[in-house]
Amino acid sequence: MRAGPVATVLALMGYDIDSPREAGTTRRDVLSVAAGLMAGGALTVAGPAGQAAAESDAARAASDSDGGCGVGYDAEFEEALAEGDDATPDSRVLAPEKPRRRFTLPLRRRYRVSSRYGVRGDWAAGHHTGIDLAVPKGTAVHAVGAGTVVLARWSGAYGKAVTVRMRDGHYAVYAHLSRISVRRGARVGAGDRIGRSGATGRATGPHLHLEIRARRGYGSDVNPVRYLAKRGARL
């Protein structure tokens, strides 16, 4: 028997209609999404391409309701980052740190991954360029590695954001903060507090969007989980 449209949406969003989801959105939330899609004529699942698109939309809706973001290429952020980076001296003059403190996690409390790195979607890069860690607003955010702050301000879709140019040349972007605790030009060590989590900019709920870039520009992102794991910090 062919599944109805509501059941299709529930299935795509990871729901078994006979059992509640363990965490995240409620069944009422999902049914509301399904009803909205049906009413707007947006529910079309025809063939692999249509199914992939529906899966992407459903995954986005599920993560967004839990504290996710839709940030992609944002000209305001990129311009501010380039300006700040060019105006900030290199951080390689920092004194060496103890190996065990070279890299660390950005959060000290329990978090939930509300959107994974690399999820396909309509972003300019074709995928989610960071990882979203859902935590209550005001949770302390720490630098994952030592470096120099090249951006600490409101930055378009990224909201209140801090970008640290790390010693290995990578850039760590911490977005959607409710509060920024550092200034451009400040030198930070691994574990230093740089701000507090929030939902500023293009965000649907409180979380930390952590993005690691191999270079300054958008599209040079790397998997933050793998990047940190190779350096002894496992998200």
Rank of each mutant, 00 (worst) to 15 (best):
E22W: 11
H209R: 10
E78K: 04
L210A: 06
G14E: 06
G84Y: 05
A87K: 10
Y158E: 00
V33T: 12
D64Q: 13
G232S: 08
P206D: 05
P99M: 08
T148E: 03
Y158T: 03
P106Q: 09
A134N: 01
A35I: 02
A49C: 02
R179L: 05
P48K: 04
A161N: 12
R202P: 05
A46F: 00
G156I: 04
R213L: 04
V222D: 02
R60Q: 13
E55H: 11
E79R: 15
T148S: 13
Y227D: 07
I131K: 07
A214M: 08
A95S: 12
S155D: 01
L208A: 10
V93C: 13
V113N: 02
L81P: 00
A52T: 12
T204P: 00
G40S: 14
W154R: 14
V222I: 12
W154P: 07
K230Q: 13
G84K: 06
D18Q: 08
G50Q: 10
V173C: 05
S65I: 11
V173H: 09
T44R: 15
T163A: 14
D122L: 12
R216F: 01
R179M: 05
A134Y: 02
Y111I: 02
R60N: 13
R92C: 06
R215Y: 03
T139C: 08
A62Y: 13
G217D: 14
V144Q: 01
G201P: 03
A82N: 09
D64V: 03
A157N: 06
H170V: 04
P136M: 04
D57I: 12
Q51W: 12
G159E: 03
R120Q: 11
H127W: 12
A46S: 14
L37Y: 11
L105Y: 08
T200I: 07
G217P: 01
D66W: 09
P89F: 03
R153K: 15
F103W: 15
R184H: 00
D86L: 14
A125K: 10
A161D: 04
L208Y: 11
L43F: 13
S63M: 01
Y117W: 14
A214H: 12
G24P: 06
A80K: 15
P48D: 06
L105T: 12
D122V: 13
V71F: 01
A134P: 01
G40L: 09
G191L: 09
G198H: 08
I194R: 05
A46W: 02
V45E: 03
G126C: 09
H127K: 13
G68T: 08
T104H: 01
V173F: 00
R213G: 00
G195F: 04
A23E: 14
E78I: 03
R102M: 12
R202F: 00
A172Q: 01
I131F: 07
D74Y: 10
G24R: 07
K230T: 08
G118C: 10
F77N: 07
A175N: 08
V141I: 15
A39G: 08
Y174N: 03
A80L: 15
A157W: 02
R196M: 03
L94K: 09
G169M: 01
A172K: 08
R183S: 14
A95W: 06
D192S: 10
S32G: 15
G156S: 11
L43T: 04
L210Y: 04
T163R: 02
A214Q: 13
A87P: 02
R112Y: 03
E55G: 01
L151V: 10
P48V: 11
S220T: 15
V93E: 13
V33H: 05
K160V: 01
G185E: 07
A233T: 06
D90M: 07
R167Q: 12
A157T: 11
